[in-house]
Simulated scan of single mutants.
Amino acid sequence: MSLGKSRLWGVVARGMAMGAADVVPGVSGGTIAFITGIYQELLDSISRVGPHALTVLRRHGPLVAWQYINGSFLLSLFTGILISVVSLARLIGYLLDTYPVVVWGFFFGLVLASVIPILRRVPRWNTGAVIYLILGVLVAIGVSELRPAQVPATPLTLFLSGGLAICAMILPGISGSFILLMIGIYPHVLTAVHELQLVKLLSFAAGAVTGLMLFSRLLSWLMHHYVARTLAFLGGILLGSLKIIWPWKLPSDEVAAMGDKMAPLMSNTSPWTFAEVTGESSYLLAAGAAALMAVLIVLAVDFWGHRRGAHH
């Protein structure tokens, strides 16, 4: 499958949006992939990377193998993600430090609005779909209630953590970095990156690649065979994940290990309680405006994607 130049740049732009979301602990790049209309293609393309692609390469040559795995699409997408992570990580980090409530307000609106295009694509609503929707909500709320553990950073735990994080990253609504933080591996991964601890990095990367290959195949198969229940479950995960990214938070009594220091865990509160306890502005209007802007962006992207799909 070849990509035209305009589509290629469109895929790069989607990758940049996914990378920007993945930088924020609590927001998943999978959400962006879904609302920009490339989720199914992403799953199908990744699921083709494997032993059979090597057989195609051996029998038919590099060009056919590249087309088989939809290589131009994957290369464009991951280039966009990389550009975004490298260039936007510092900006998003600055905005999160300076205007946290407004930034979280924007992502809250983004995730809330993303539920609409996902649930609208459920082909038929029945008891099974409703049950899976509720199950998705419960899974996301369960993840949000996790409390940090202290897992030792052995090659095996890093391998398993890499697999778990990449699975979360593919799922709309659950952030891979949030999962790593909760199981206590996040600081170890950051240290391994900063100090170039190759054995640890390779263990984590091997787990991520393995998880990506296996989980993308499973999700792709589910999306083709059980589309209504799978979409309802994904929509439920998005709804439940709103608890994780609620903009107004206050420190609770519990603490989370963050590198060499302990950071307080945050619990949700109302904008008025937040202002009263912190003595700062609740930024209610700014956060509300940011959330509304995000909702309008998602609905516009969905409308544009829907129209393009109708014309093809």
Score class of each variant (00 low, 15 high):
residue 134 I to G: 12
residue 211 G to Q: 04
residue 161 S to E: 03
residue 198 L to H: 09
residue 233 F to Q: 02
residue 252 S to V: 01
residue 276 E to S: 09
residue 300 A to G: 13
residue 312 H to D: 07
residue 47 S to M: 09
residue 14 R to A: 13
residue 126 N to H: 14
residue 178 F to R: 00
residue 270 S to M: 13
residue 169 M to K: 03
residue 134 I to V: 15
residue 85 V to R: 08
residue 148 P to G: 11
residue 85 V to T: 10
residue 73 F to T: 04
residue 206 A to M: 13
residue 234 L to M: 15
residue 172 P to D: 13
residue 304 W to C: 02
residue 277 V to M: 10
residue 241 S to V: 02
residue 178 F to W: 09
residue 86 V to I: 15
residue 46 I to K: 08
residue 219 L to F: 04
residue 81 I to C: 07
residue 151 V to K: 02
residue 73 F to D: 01
residue 18 M to N: 02
residue 106 F to V: 13
residue 203 S to P: 11
residue 10 G to K: 14
residue 281 S to I: 15
residue 147 R to I: 08
residue 265 L to C: 01
residue 194 H to N: 14
residue 252 S to F: 03
residue 239 L to K: 00
residue 79 T to W: 07
residue 127 T to N: 09
residue 193 V to D: 10
residue 149 A to I: 06
residue 239 L to R: 02
residue 264 P to C: 08
residue 95 L to K: 04
residue 253 D to I: 10
residue 116 I to M: 07
residue 265 L to G: 00
residue 131 I to T: 14
residue 264 P to A: 07
residue 236 G to H: 03
residue 312 H to M: 07
residue 80 G to H: 11
residue 180 L to T: 13
residue 227 V to L: 10
residue 287 A to E: 01
residue 205 A to D: 04
residue 249 K to A: 04
residue 273 T to R: 10
residue 153 A to Q: 06
residue 91 L to V: 11
residue 118 I to R: 01
residue 53 A to C: 02
residue 180 L to K: 11
residue 102 V to D: 02
residue 268 N to C: 03
residue 97 D to F: 06
residue 188 H to D: 12
residue 234 L to I: 15
residue 159 F to Q: 06
residue 30 G to H: 06
residue 50 G to E: 12
residue 272 W to Y: 14
residue 302 D to S: 09
residue 20 A to M: 12
residue 175 S to K: 09
residue 284 L to A: 10
residue 8 L to P: 00
residue 51 P to L: 11
residue 267 S to P: 01
residue 107 F to T: 08
residue 172 P to K: 10
residue 273 T to A: 12
residue 291 A to E: 03
residue 264 P to F: 03
residue 110 L to N: 12
residue 292 L to N: 03
residue 256 A to L: 13
residue 207 G to F: 07
residue 195 E to W: 09
residue 294 A to I: 14
